[in-house]
């Protein structure tokens, strides 16, 4: 149970799709001019992520991983099809998105009209494929955790696009330097928001105390999953917090 809660909050705040890994930036920038459309797209992303990540987890476990075909019989035990994962993941995602599009068109024509061209583009939204690829590279252990990861990442993305859409609606009334208007100021605001989100980095490490048990656990897990980069980020975030506290 504890690991579910930990993964849930970690995926929403610390490893936020937009602010920590820049996934789904294209639609994040293109669809964030109005709050209502942003909410629609965010909800679609949550749904698609929550469905495709567990599906791709099953594919990864029973088809792609090293030795995953062992259930077919001992002679298949040493097959490693993981090089096919890109193509299989993207095929699953494209199919699911098509399905979501049909369902939305049937039950909510208003939402369908407002999302317009962007619904098919969810298929090429990096957040969706990124969710599946991170699920694979972080070696998420069970189907339940995979579902949790997909759902929480989706919620994180939703929060991010909601926040930027609200800010962009307000910023229309401000006097931004002309060359920065539109895209430029959005980039800089997103950067500032990402700095703000980095302060969540201390959330699961107990405020940066080095001898903490959970801290050691998290650090160990990080080391296993994502070698240098992620750890460096976390570490920097913690030392940054300490610097602020001082």
């Amino acid at each position: 149970m504890l690991e579910h809660i930990e993964l849930f909050f970690k995926s929403i705040f610390i490893d936020n799709m937009v602010f920590a890994t820049f996934l789904g930036m294209c639609s994040y920038l293109a669809v964030s001019k109005k709050v209502t459309t942003a909410v629609g797209l965010g909800a679609a992303v949550i749904f698609v992520l929550a469905v495709t990540v567990p599906l791709n987890w099953l594919l990864d476990q029973y088809l792609l991983q090293d030795g995953a075909l062992a259930w077919l019989g001992p002679e298949y035990a040493d097959y490693n099809l993981s090089f096919l994962s890109f193509i299989l993941f993207i095929a699953t995602i494209a199919t699911m998105v098509q399905l979501v599009e049909i369902v939305v068109e049937k039950f909510s024509p208003a939402l369908y009209n407002s999302l317009g061209i962007f619904l098919p583009l969810i298929a090429v939204n990096c957040a969706i494929l990124g969710g599946s690829l991170f699920m694979q590279s972080r070696e998420i252990a069970t189907l339940g955790l995979a579902f949790n990861y997909g759902l929480a990442s989706g919620i994180g993305w939703f929060l991010a696009i909601l926040a930027i859409a609200a800010i962009r609606e307000k910023i229309r009334y401000s006097n931004v330097p002309p060359p920065l208007r539109g895209l430029g100021i959005t980039f800089i605001i997103t950067g500032l928001m990402a700095i703000g989100f980095m302060s969540f980095g201390g959330m699961l490490t107990g405020g940066g105390s080095e001898d903490n048990v959970t801290d050691a656990k998290v650090a160990k897990e990080e080391e296993k999953k994502e070698p240098a980069k992620e750890e460096e980020l976390e570490e920097n975030a913690v030392s940054f917090n300490q610097a602020i506290n001082k």
Binding site: F19, A20, T21, F22, P177, P178, P179, L180, L183, G184, I185, F187, I188, T190, G191, L192, A194, I195, M198, E232, L233, N236, A237
Partner: peptide, 19 residues
Amino acid sequence: LLSPMALIVVGIIIWVQRS
């Protein structure tokens, strides 16, 4: 080296290019 700075650097590139 942290990720947020990439956004800000691109923002500045856009600023320079558009001015």
